[in-house]
């Protein structure tokens, strides 16, 4: 394993674009923390201070920060994709195999990288949330109560990178892989809308937003459902407390996301094994 990591380290660390994007990504994570905490935009003459809204309160902060920074995963996703598609365009995948790396080892090295990216990113988000929480939270009780969202963040990133890895192996070109990601996202959206329309047609136009939707278990949607948009209740604001309602990670989506992570890794292996390079 150390050998595979050494190989990957040489491939990525000295690749300027990957290094820049990685640094940018972590700077961005830090910047999000700073911006959320210290930039207070005025909307209609009222200063919007999200700290006042209870954004940084334990335990809600874990979900809030994890939700906000999750969009940044696309940065690392691009690196994951480039890291694989470059191996095709440089012909180095073929050369690696000829030199005696097995297809399995090649894939292992990429998956290891994915998990390391996910882990480092998770630790970073954990640290940011913890620091901001200690500075701004109005209560220091129940600090680690919502910590399950940090675990969910790790699963979410691991799934996303495995999916990117699969797309990159399938499509071989970074532009096509990113396009593939976008198309997949759109298709999932369309399926969701169609499902909603069908249910509404059956129930005379009524729908229960909390009800069961098959489309919630599509790959990207199920990973999105790991960390939902924080629930808010204006009542909390009026009473001067927090408008955020504490929630926890739905284990059903943990299971489905882990399943999809394994599925895409398995599909990647099959694809690589069968392909003539």
């Amino acid at each position: 394993m150390k050998r595979l990591l050494n190989i990957e380290w040489n491939k990525i660390f000295y690749y300027k674009s990957a290094r820049i994007f990685t640094i940018l990504y972590f700077l961005m994570l830090a910047a999000v923390g700073v911006i959320l905490a210290y930039i207070k935009p005025e909307i209609g003459g009222i200063e919007l201070d999200i700290a006042q809204l209870g954004f940084f309160n334990f335990p809600d902060i874990w979900q809030n920060i994890a939700y906000v920074v999750a969009i940044g995963k696309i940065f690392l996703g691009v690196i994951v994709i480039m890291n694989v598609t470059n191996e095709f365009s440089n012909g180095t995948l073929k050369q690696n195999l000829i030199d005696g790396l097995s297809k399995k080892e090649f894939l292992q090295s990429k998956i290891l990288t994915n998990f390391i990216f996910a882990a480092v990113s998770t630790v970073f988000v954990f640290a940011i949330s913890l620091i901001l929480g200690f500075i701004f939270s109005n209560s220091q009780d129940a600090v680690f109560k919502g910590i399950d969202f940090i675990g969910a963040y790790f699963i979410k990133l691991s799934f996303f990178f495995s999916f990117c890895l699969f797309l990159a192996l399938l499509l071989k070109k970074s532009a096509f892989s990113l396009l593939g990601l976008f198309v997949w996202w759109v298709v999932e959206g369309i399926i969701s809308v169609v499902e909603v329309l069908i249910i509404m047609a059956r129930n005379n136009g009524n729908i229960d937003p909390e009800g069961f939707f098959i489309s919630n278990f599509l790959p990207l949607k199920s990973s999105a459902n790991l960390i939902n948009f924080p629930t808010m209740d204006p009542q909390g604001f009026i009473t001067g407390k927090s408008i955020f309602v504490s929630s926890s990670v739905d284990w059903v989506f943990v299971v489905s996301s882990v399943f999809y992570t394994a599925l895409f890794i398995w599909l990647s292996y099959r694809l690589l094994k069968k392909r003539d390079l």
């Binding site: 491939k11 000295y14 690749y15 470059n86 440089n90 012909g91 180095t92 073929k94 050369q95 195999l97 000829i98 030199d99 005696g100």
Partner: peptide, 14 residues
């Protein structure tokens, strides 16, 4: 393969 050295088609490096 580790006892073999091979180059195919064109030099493939990073």
């Amino acid at each position: 393969l580790k006892k073999i050295g091979a180059i195919i088609e064109r030099p493939n490096f990073y």
